[in-house]
Design a protein around this nucleic acid. Structure first.
Ligand SMILES: [Zn+2]
Ligand SMILES: [Zn+2]
Ligand SMILES: [Zn+2]
Ligand SMILES: [Zn+2]
Lengths: 126, 126
DNA sequence: ATTATTAATGCAACTAAGTTGCAAATATAA
DNA sequence: TTATATTTGCAACTTAGTTGCATTAATAAT
């Protein structure tokens, strides 16, 4: 079930995503907001925002959970699927607007594909 | 640093990979071997086997760590990179001998790519 | 505006994966 | 057989994430 009431917690979390480009890890959100929000609340609100199609989540390096804003998703049509790029230098993670073709696999049915590309981001290249 | 002594622990762990096809999660290894091996030992031996190019590791669903045998890798040349497939029904994970082309990304340097494909495996298709 | 209803929150306690320091055990070299 | 250095078990710890429940607060009803 998604968000029902427009609470302070929801506003605070959405603000993080509106004032930052790129994805934000749950650990970062916890560090930034722990004076205002309990970690249970953070996990629960993020989960609901994902359910509503406002955010999407994925796993970054070391299996840490990241969230980023969706574009054009809703509860019913939650198809913001794309690869993610994590900089090995600064740790920043971005959504990539790139199509990667996954070939059909014999005798298997593909439901989804999670792609994490690691390398150096624009600012860390030089 | 890799394996130096041929210990009981190494033999027990290697045996798991020799008698099973596909990848094995660390949680499964811990459950199977906890009467014979301490979990610290399991983590440490797996880490060394990976360093030696005997096994490779990757993250499956929910960020759980999996290991599988390498083919033709060594400590110096550890390039057993390929996508992995996890069955959403039975949870089994396999290495895929498939090439997926990742296009160049403008202003970014790509070091590596982790691809996890989820779907139904051969035995769970029907 | 006041009250009632129910979702959302904080808190504390918990689970599970993974790590670490150190003493004891064991594989290998001498 | 003894010496040495690696490996192991253990216990204690860290961190991400979850859960039950009483309290708080947003919304609906009056
Ligand atoms: Zn960077
Ligand atoms: Zn994204
Ligand atoms: Zn299956
Ligand atoms: Zn593999």
């Amino acid at each position: 079930m998604g968000i029902i009431r427009k609470t302070q917690s929801v506003a605070l979390l959405l603000d993080e995503f509106n004032t930052n480009s790129g994805a934000i890890s749950v650990t970062t959100l916890n560090k930034r907001l722990n004076s205002n929000l309990n970690k249970s609340t953070i996990y629960r609100v993020l989960d609901k925002l994902e359910d509503d199609g406002v955010l999407h989540s994925f796993l970054g390096d070391n299996g840490i959970k990241w969230y980023a804003k969706c574009e054009g998703c809703s509860h019913d049509n939650h198809k913001d699927i794309h690869p993610h790029f994590q900089c090995v230098v600064c740790g920043k993670v971005d959504c990539l607007n790139v199509d990667i073709v996954v070939p059909k696999i014999p005798n298997r049915e593909i439901n989804s594909t999670e792609i994490l590309i690691k390398g150096k981001c624009e600012t860390c290249l030089n």
